[in-house]
């Protein structure tokens, strides 16, 4: 079978070579650049000590965490509902819920501007009701709405797929044993969806950590980590810090996904 193995290796070789040249090597270069500033290796430490970077990191993690929990709640309910019921218009509703799938972050940012920007509908409605124009697109709240907008479609899809695989007999079994609606959700549905929710949550979190387009569109003064990296690299020309921050950010998202994958045993990856 030695020949076989050689043939298989030959099939994988071009992709591996590409990956080494344009991924592994660049990451190593970036790790080195991160330590090439005036502070040397201590640059990595600065990130954890410097109040500004630490605050940015904290803010980003907090935002990503809140987005993840909110998305799981919304998409979990909507996904289970769509998977469990057959009714006229279900296809359309599903299509609507998954429409923004694969919208890039910039476009999502623009959607938030249309909703809650200076000329947004929320502002217009608020003005008509209270006389005061409500504008929150250009703040952390706007970013939160944008990340929800971005995360709900794919999470709904994941939840629907998992809910459709749940054995209805389990639920019927629980009902036949006298379990009420909420008990069934708690004892049967949620445990059954645990893997999918964990996987979707990890993707959601990692994506929100690293997403950049939405923040870029909404404002330059929202200092989530990717924005800080961009600013350090372009405006500050502080390449060592930008590299170090990128490295830390990459390590965090990768670790979150790896942990979730080990826990859920499913294929987990972020797209962002």
């Amino acid at each position: 079978m030695g020949n076989d193995r050689l043939a298989l290796a030959a099939l994988v070789a071009p992709a591996i070579a590409f990956l080494i040249a344009f991924f592994v090597f660049p990451l190593l270069m970036m790790a080195r650049t991160g330590a090439s500033g005036p502070d040397g290796l201590a640059t990595y430490l600065t990130i954890l000590v410097d109040a500004r970077y630490l605050a940015s990191l904290g803010k980003t993690v907090l935002l990503a965490g809140t987005v993840t929990l909110t998305t799981l709640a919304i998409a979990g309910v909507a996904g289970v509902f769509l998977a469990r019921h057959r009714f006229p218009g279900r296809r359309v509703l599903t299509a609507f819920l998954t429409l923004p799938l694969a919208f890039p972050g910039v476009v999502v940012g623009f959607m938030v501007i249309l909703l809650a920007g200076r000329q947004g509908v929320v502002g217009t409605i608020a003005e008509a009701l209270t006389g005061e124009r409500l504008v929150f697109a250009y703040s952390l709240a706007g970013l939160f709405v944008g990340y929800l907008y971005f995360s709900i479609p794919r999470t709904v899809l994941t939840v629907m797929a998992a809910a459709e695989k749940l054995d209805p007999a389990l639920e019927e079994g629980a009902r036949s044993l006298g379990a009420g609606r909420w008990r069934v959700v708690r004892d049967v549905v949620l445990p059954g969806l645990e893997g999918a929710l964990l996987a979707a949550g990890a993707i959601c979190f990692a994506t929100a950590m690293g997403a950049f387009g939405t923040a870029f569109t909404l404002a330059t003064q929202i200092d989530v980590l990717p924005m800080v990296i961009y600013a350090e690299f372009t405006v500050g020309a502080n390449i060592a810090v930008a590299a170090a921050l990128s490295f830390v950010l990459g390590a965090i998202t990768w670790a979150v996904l790896a942990i979730a994958r080990t826990a859920a045993g499913a294929n987990v990856a972020a797209a962002g």
Binding site: A243, S246, L249, W254, A270, G272
Partner: peptide, 21 residues
């Protein structure tokens, strides 16, 4: 290894590419 690039934010990968190439 092949899936790794998706697990790392685009901005980090982009920066790494610029630094290397």
């Amino acid at each position: 290894a092949l899936v790794m690039p998706v697990a790392i934010p685009g901005i980090a990968t982009g920066l790494a590419l610029i630094l290397a190439w």
